[in-house]
Every structure is written in structure tokens, then in C-alpha cells.
């Protein structure tokens, strides 16, 4: 399985490491030890090199992530508009700290420094969909919708 993805990705990306890792990350949600070894093997690199690159970028994770990934922007603009309240509510509701995943593997909560859309801050991204001007009430509503399993269009901004 992993090897098919790697081989496929390696050909399309001319053997470049990061795009290959990105595809695995996207497909499995994380980079397993086997996957890293397989990538090193297929691309003719040492495992320590692959591990060094993969651990450098926060986009790659070595632990499995939840089904829904909730990212709260904690950049300056979002922070002064109360992003920490959104983090607090989500942490409390989900029972996890930022960076953690719920035991049922449903939710992963992350914070990032800036998403580049400061005008609609505080911003919460749920499964690739941007939610702006997040008040505590809106955060709770968003979480409720996610739990209900509403289909969410990817990369769509919702203010």
C-alpha cells in the first residue's frame, strides 16, 4: 500500500522528498515509521535524512491525526480578537490540549501562528474550511456541526 503510493508519487514528483511525504501524509493522516523507512528506501536516502526533513516541518506528523482537524489561528490579529477563547472552548469540549487528538480519533486540535486572513480573525479552520469572526457561540455551533457529521466543502471560506 505505502509502497504503491510512494512509487507513484516519486515518479510524478521526480523523486523529490517533500511532495512524496505530503502525499503519504494526506493519504494516511500521518507518517508511520514504516512509511518513512519505505520512502528512504525508495528514494535512495538515509532514514535519518528523511526523518530530519519530516520532523522539521509541522505539516508532517508522526502520530495519527483525528478524522476532523480543527486549526485555530493564534496569530497577532486573531490573538487580540480573542482566539484564545476559541482554543479554550475547543480544548474544554474535546478534552484535549492543542496538538492533541481525542481518544476516539475524531478530532485533532492544532494552533498555528498565522493563516494570512487576519481581516476575518479570529479564524478557525475545520477540515480545510475557513471560519472567520469566531465568537465562542460560533465555535460551539461549528463543533456541533462537525459532530453531527455535516459535509464540509474543502478550502471554502465561510465568514
Amino acid at each position: 500500500m505505502v509502497s504503491t503510493i510512494i512509487e507513484d508519487a516519486a515518479v510524478r514528483h521526480h523523486g523529490l522528498l517533500i511532495p512524496v511525504l505530503q502525499e503519504i501524509q494526506e493519504h494516511y493522516g500521518y507518517l508511520s515509521e514504516e512509511a518513512v523507512k519505505e520512502v528512504a528506501n525508495k528514494l535512495g536516502m538515509k532514514i535519518s535524512d528523511v526523518y530530519g526533513v519530516a520532523s522539521f516541518y509541522t505539516a508532517f506528523s508522526f502520530t495519527p491525526k483525528g478524522k476532523h482537524i480543527i486549526t485555530v489561528c493564534n496569530g497577532t490579529a486573531c490573538h487580540v480578537r480573542g482566539a484564545s477563547r476559541a482554543v479554550d472552548i475547543l480544548s474544554e469540549e474535546l478534552g484535549i490540549k492543542p496538538g492533541g487528538t481525542t481518544p476516539d480519533m475524531q478530532f485533532t486540535l492544532e494552533t498555528v501562528a498565522c493563516l494570512g486572513c487576519c481581516a476575518i480573525g479570529p479564524v478557525v479552520v475545520a477540515d480545510g474550511k475557513y471560519h472567520g469572526n469566531m465568537t465562542p457561540a460560533k465555535v460551539e455551533k461549528l463543533l456541533l456541526n462537525l459532530r453531527k457529521g455535516e459535509s464540509i466543502e474543502k478550502d471554502k471560506i465561510c465568514v
Binding site: K46, S48, D49, Y51, S55, F56
Partner: peptide, 9 residues
């Protein structure tokens, strides 16, 4: 050998 390397940042 390249058994060790820098990790994280």
C-alpha cells in the same frame, strides 16, 4: 553510516 541526524527545529 548516517545513523544520526538533526531532528525538529
Amino acid at each position: 553510516a548516517k545513523a544520526i541526524g538533526f531532528a525538529n527545529r
